[in-house]
Every structure is written in C-alpha cells, then in structure tokens.
C-alpha cells in the first residue's frame, strides 16, 4: 500500500492562549509561539505507519509512506521528523501560510496525488489553528474519490478500508475502496484502533498516541529523499479566495468567585445567576 500523509505546521496548541492580536486587528501575531506538526496530522502519520506494518516488527515496512507539507524551508524540520518516525520520503511545496487558503491547499494536493498515485491519502480531521475542517473532503471531491472523515478506527480489508467514524450521537461505519481519502480523529491512535491486513489478531500497540523516533532514525532521516516543489507548478496562477479582513480576541469573562460549600453554590445559582 502506498499512503500519502498531508502534514501542516501549526503553532503549539498548548500555547494558543498566548496568541496575540495587535490593536489594528489586521493579523494574528504568532511571534514567540513554538511550531509543531498539527496533532491530528501526527495521528494521521501514526495511522499510515500502522497500516504499513504488522505491529510486531515496525522496522519492516510493508508499504510506502510519503509525507507532504506546504510551507517555507523551516517546515523541512517537521518533514525530517516525519521521516525519522518512519515515513519513506517527503515532499515540500514551497510557499508560506499567508499565500494559502483551503482551496489552494486542496488543489495543490490534488496535483501531487495525481503525480504520486497513492492508494490512500491520510490527514488530520482539522488543523488546530485555522479549524476549517475542509481540505480532506475537498480533496476527495476534486479527485472524485470516496472519503471517510473523523476516523476513530480503521481496519484494512481486501482493496479498501472499514472505517468507524465518530459522528454526532454515535459511530458511523463506512467501507471505502482504494483509492480513498481518510481524515482521522483523536482516538485513531488508541492501542488497537488501526489494523492493517498483517496486524496479528489481538495485537495492541504498547503506547498511546504516537511513536517517537529513536536517535539513529533521526540521523538516518537526514539521508531520506526530500523533494521540493513550487506551488505555482501545482496550482498555476490560482490565487486566494478567502480574505481575512479582521481578527479579534474573545471577550474576557468577568472574574468568578469561590464558594465555600455546596449550599452556597446552590444559593448563588438560584438567586444570583438565576440559572436553576
């Protein structure tokens, strides 16, 4: 199986409360924030690795995983870390965040997919900065491929995947045939959420979330192929169609109070907040 994993660099979500918006409201000031791969995209990478191994011998790759990002040269650090965790090669589309919107990302990925011809495209269900939840579905439509969004479980079958999706009020299960696009949700990285055709019955990963690259792998990753492409070569002269005209911070909540016991809480909820 050949899998293309789309990764986006985002400001560290643990520091999102440090996001600053200048008084002019013309941009989001990301200075001082640390950059890392979007957590959901890291889960997609972990999913790709699990689908191309039997679990017991993770060094024996049973397929090819290509990591892709769109961004400036610094994002090669993120691609190298994807290579160190097990991706086979990487592609960077040279551009900057402010030159992109969802439509351009989907269009660029469409061209890359047409060149690479993977069986499966994986990515996170959303990026934690822009939170638009758009690219995976749009890419599937542009390719006229089936999709399964918000995947919480994946089981490989002959010629496709059985995908359990977390939806409002329950779990929806879809069967998709390759080639397909799958976007992943949080619980896809539970120890037994992903089963490739080679995963042994009852096998569970001994860790939650994602694997870490051992030091020798980090050294070896420097030798793995990393190609750079120009955005214009993929999307031609297409330009931005979403324009952010203003940013603002959320209104501050007024400071709350501590209550001494349950009785005081109920009394305040009844008489002050009039909430009960």
């Amino acid at each position: 199986m050949k899998i293309l994993v789309a990764l986006k660099r985002v400001a560290d979500p643990a520091n999102h409360n440090k996001v600053k918006i200048p008084a002019a409201g013309d941009k989001i000031d990301t200075a001082g924030l640390e950059w890392q791969i979007n957590p959901f995209d890291l889960y997609a990478l972990e999913t790709a690795l699990r689908l191309t191994e039997d679990g017991k011998a993770p060094k024996t790759r049973l397929g090819e995983v290509v990591a892709v990002t769109l961004g400036p040269a610094e994002t090669e650090t993120n691609l190298r870390s994807a290579l160190a965790t097990g991706a086979d090669r990487a592609i960077r589309v040279d551009t900057t965040d402010d030159a992109l919107d969802g439509r351009l990302v989907a269009a660029a990925l469409q061209k890359l997919v047409e060149e690479e011809k993977p069986d499966l495209v994986l990515m996170g269900k959303q990026v934690v900065d822009g939170e638009n939840n758009y690219v995976g579905q749009a890419l599937a439509e542009l390719l006229d491929w089936p999709m399964a969004t918000f995947a919480a479980t994946i089981k490989e079958e002959a010629g496709g995947l059985l995908v359990g999706r977390e939806v409002d009020g329950g779990v929806s299960t879809l069967r998709v045939k390759f080639p397909a696009v799958v976007t992943v949700d949080l619980r896809i990285v539970a120890p037994d959420s992903v089963r490739s055709s080679k995963t042994a019955e009852g096998f569970k990963y001994p860790y939650e979330e994602v694997r870490f690259a051992p030091l020798p792998a980090i050294m070896q990753a420097k030798k793995k192929p990393l190609a750079v492409k120009k955005l214009a070569d993929l999307v031609g002269g297409a330009t931005l169609s979403s324009k952010y005209v203003k940013f603002e911070a959320p209104p501050a909540r007024k400071a709350g109070v501590k209550v001494k016991d349950v009785q005081e809480l109920v009394q305040k909820l009844a008489t002050e907040a009039k909430a009960i």
Binding site: V19, E131, S241, S242, K243, V245, P250
Partner: peptide, 25 residues
C-alpha cells in the same frame, strides 16, 4: 454584512482568536 459582502466570523486557535473572513468566489 458589509455592503453586498457577507463577513463570516470564525473561531480559530481553540477559541483564542476570531477571524472575520470574506469569500471571493
């Protein structure tokens, strides 16, 4: 509403910022 443009307000960065976006298609 900004004249004939709809301006969409969207939460970003886990609700720590709101962006106002106009769509050009």
């Amino acid at each position: 509403v900004n004249g004939t443009q709809v301006v969409f307000k969207r939460p970003m960065f886990a609700g720590n910022a709101f962006g106002h976006v106009q769509l050009g298609t």
